[in-house]
Design a protein around this nucleic acid. Structure first.
Length: 196
DNA sequence: GTAGGGATAATCT
DNA sequence: GATTATCCCTACG
């Protein structure tokens, strides 16, 4: 299960450090269809001082989960057909979160294949909207605390800075992302949303 | 393997 | 009315 230790850790970190810390952690999904899980291999950091963040202009109906306690899920709908999932970090009320961009599938690959309608292991969860589809993360999970079913965050493999690569974020205009390197990838992973 | 464009609707201006 | 923290399919090297 998810120790208070993990919540404390996520509360104490800023968005970028949390994005690094979350690489190697595991997400585990339980539904009536069965269970599946994956290891986080790619993330992006967002917070209130960042023009590209949903929380930049303050709290709205859509982004309110981002201002909750660390360890909460912020799930939003975008592009008319996709869900994306963040893990809220930092102190309650601040509005910081880490977008989960890619997973390496660990268990329940058959279920993920069925939901995604693809068989290639490298195409199951290698993108922010792909992984929400594979783990069945949808609107009702917005605001869910990740310490119990149907979705749990757990510590996994621990990686050091030398194992990580920081790049500019995906899908953010150059103006908003000006010079920032807030996307974190596990070096050498075959399961990133795009190659390095 | 890389590039371009369509799908599709909540959210915000 | 415009924008969007995306994905998939097609076409072309």
């Amino acid at each position: 299960m998810y120790s208070d230790n993990l919540i404390e850790k996520l509360t104490s970190l800023n968005a970028v450090d949390a994005a690094k810390f979350l690489i190697g952690c595991e997400l585990i999904s339980f539904t009536s269809e069965g269970g599946c899980s994956g290891m986080i291999v790619e993330t992006e950091a967002y917070d209130m001082r960042d023009k590209a963040s949903h929380s930049f202009k303050g709290m709205t109906v859509r982004n309110s989960a981002m201002f909750g306690p660390a360890g909460t899920a912020y799930v939003y709908f975008t592009y008319g057909m996709h869900f994306c999932m963040n893990i809220v970090v930092g102190k309650e009320g601040f509005g910081a979160a880490v977008l989960i961009r890619a997973l390496e599938p660990l268990t329940g690959l058959e279920l993920m294949s069925k939901r995604r309608n693809v068989s290639n292991k490298h195409n199951l969860a290698s993108g922010p909207a792909k992984l929400t589809q594979a783990l069945y993360i949808t609107r009702p999970l917005n605001g869910h605390r990740l310490n119990g079913p149907p979705l749990i965050l757990k510590r996994g493999t621990k990686f050091n800075d030398v194992d990580l690569v920081l790049t500019k974020r995906i899908g953010i205009s150059e103006k908003k992302d000006f010079g920032l390197k807030r996307r974190v990838c596990l070096k050498g992973s075959e399961f990133l949303s795009r190659p390095l």
